[in-house]
């Protein structure tokens, strides 16, 4: 069978399965990114807060996650999550290995990993904030929530955008690691195809091409967003 029929959408073609898996990769990355944004925002707030224990905890979190291989984090959550679930189930009398949902593990892992990177991005953007503009908001009588929503958040988002773009690219590529849990995302689907057709090169190349398409589209999207956010910048 030629590579075209193999990767096509006809009978015996793997095109549809690969595209579907690419969507899973996107969904996985997107969810992980959002979880990471929440964790990163919290960690950045903790780092910037006056409370020493909070700062210490956040510093520990970002140092640890940026120094330890991402694969190790995935193993921890996958096996650790199963063990924890097993213990809980044990309380109810169940025995044996209990699998955790692989998508959930993937989202949690990517969220925890990218949160550490996003924390630094948010922190840097907040520190670059022009205090005078915040003061002007206080001076017209805006309350804290309003200042956060109308002034601080838009200004921080603008500054953070290029950094967030980098984190997103790293995360997209990291999402391939989740294939070790058996979740059928793009790389795992390519593995399955490679195994059942004995044409590994064709399938991994196809996966690489799809990843390249996604990362290129992301680059384009982020540069559009940055151009939009830069309006009004000198």
């Amino acid at each position: 069978m030629s590579a075209f029929t193999l990767l096509g959408f006809g009978p015996g073609g793997w095109g549809g399965a690969l595209l579907l898996a690419a969507l899973t990769t996107l969904a996985l990355s997107l969810c992980g990114f959002l979880v990471g944004a929440v964790l990163g925002g919290l960690a950045a707030a903790a780092k910037l807060s006056g409370a020493a224990p909070l700062r210490l905890a956040a510093d520990g979190y970002t140092t640890l996650l940026r120094g330890v291989p991402d694969l190790l984090v995935i193993y921890l959550l996958y096996f650790g999550g199963s063990a924890a679930l097993g213990q809980v189930a044990g309380l109810f009398g169940a025995t044996g290995f209990i699998g955790v949902p692989a998508f959930g593990v993937g989202v949690a892992a990517l969220g925890i990993i990218s949160g550490a990177y996003q924390a630094e991005v948010f922190r840097g953007a907040y520190l670059a904030l022009d205090r005078g503009q915040v003061e002007a908001a206080r001076a017209v009588g805006m309350h804290r929530g309003l200042i956060l929503r109308r002034v601080v958040a838009p200004l921080v988002a603008r500054t953070a955008l290029p950094g967030l773009g980098n984190v997103w690219q790293i995360l997209l590529k990291d999402s391939a690691l989740v294939s070790v849990t058996g979740l059928v995302e793009l790389l795992r689907q390519a593995q399955v195809g490679a195994g059942s057709t004995r044409q590994p090169f064709t399938f991994y190349l196809a996966a690489a091409a799809l990843y390249l398409a996604i990362t290129s589209l992301s680059t384009w999207g982020f540069s559009r967003a940055e151009a939009h956010a830069r309006r009004g910048a000198p």
């Binding site: 997209l172 391939a176 690691l177 294939s179 690489a208 990843y211 390249l212």
Partner: peptide, 8 residues
Amino acid sequence: TPLLVQIF
């Protein structure tokens, strides 16, 4: 592209 894909 992801490093893991390159390795495979």
